[in-house]
């Protein structure tokens, strides 16, 4: 009979599952807007809030949000963070980056996590702490070639 010969082993494996998610009418239109350099939100006819990204329904009133609004491409930093570490799927050439939540003018929520600050040497951390502040003003900088996804806005530039 096989005796226990070695320390308990580990087995390496890779979990791979393909997904294809429907964007639905609201988010399809939102990203179509990106192609035309427009940031689109929707307005709730009950509470009056304008939300970006556009929503099919109001998260608080549960009302459909059918009124489309093109919003400002400038706003204020609500919070930011500097990411400088890797994990599976993130290689050293993908960092550092500055993730930020931005409150766009006339919008009633923050952008969440898809917005990044850039436009200067962000590898220089001293410079980052000098330029990037809660409350600083920023403006969207679009890519020349846009494909209708969140990377169409290349980065948000600090307005000095």
């Amino acid at each position: 009979m096989a005796e226990q010969k070695e320390k308990p082993r580990k087995v390496a494996a890779m979990g791979m599952v393909p997904y294809e998610m429907a964007l639905g009418p609201t988010w399809t239109r939102f990203f179509e807007g990106f192609k035309e350099k427009k940031i689109l939100g929707t307005k709730c006819n009950k509470c009056g809030r304008v939300l970006v990204p556009a929503r099919p329904f109001c998260s608080r009133c549960f009302e459909p949000m059918e009124e489309w609004v093109e919003v400002a491409q400038e706003g204020t930093i609500v919070t930011w963070s500097y990411v400088n570490y890797t994990y599976f799927g993130v290689t050293p050439d993908m960092i550092p980056l500055i993730g930020a939540t931005i409150k766009l003018d006339g919008v009633d929520c923050g952008t969440g996590m898809w917005t990044q600050i850039g436009g200067f040497d962000i590898k220089d951390f001293e410079l980052v702490t000098k330029k990037v502040k809660v409350g600083a003003r920023v403006r969207a900088v679009w890519r020349r070639k846009r494909q209708g996804n969140f990377r169409d806005i290349d980065y948000w530039k600090i307005i000095e």
């Binding site: 990204p53 993908m94 969440g112 898809w114 990044q116």
Partner: peptide, 9 residues
Amino acid sequence: EPFLQVVIG
């Protein structure tokens, strides 16, 4: 979801 709240970190 991978298209609206994406960020490395």
